[in-house]
Amino acid sequence: MILLRLFIAFVEVGAFAFGGGYAALPLIERVIVHRYGWLSMMEMTDVVSISQVTPGPIAINAATFVGMRVAGLPGAIVASFATVLPQTILLFIIGIFFFRGKRPTTIDHAFLALRPGVAGLIGVATVSIFISAIFLSTSPIVIDPVALVAFSVVLILRIKRVNLFPLVFLGAGIGLLGHLVEYLTGTGASPR
């Protein structure tokens, strides 16, 4: 039965996709393209590019897309929830120990190093977001003026503690406006 095969395939993707984001891509590709043949390599590239312009984790985006392709909306639902099932079960068990009662001091000690470590790792993610957002190309260095304006404006407003959610839309607005200006003046940088 096709729904069961989708379920098994995406439980595997969810269970072995460590590291998040694009780290999961080779695994998704191996299972979906090579083993089951549900998508061609070209379609896989489409999934990646659609993931870039939509919210949400790439693994769920891929699951929904493949589910729709193979078995319509029921397939999309089964595949997406199959993807998040392994982590749900695992974190449920971890949660029982972490949130209930008194924690052993050993665990507290681990977190004294994990807190600064995690802050450093989020810093790494921020650097890579900065590079992919602001630079159209890194060699030679070509800066995206529209992204840079959005970045600067939002940074200043955020330092002044303006609410975050409208700022994301402000960014989108600056993007559209910037493109309009480029279009009217004929100075457009090549779109990614």
Partner: peptide
Amino acid sequence: RAALRGMSGAICAIMII
């Protein structure tokens, strides 16, 4: 794509803070 260019810049600033 254009909206996304601005949004990535905004999200990047938000992440830095």
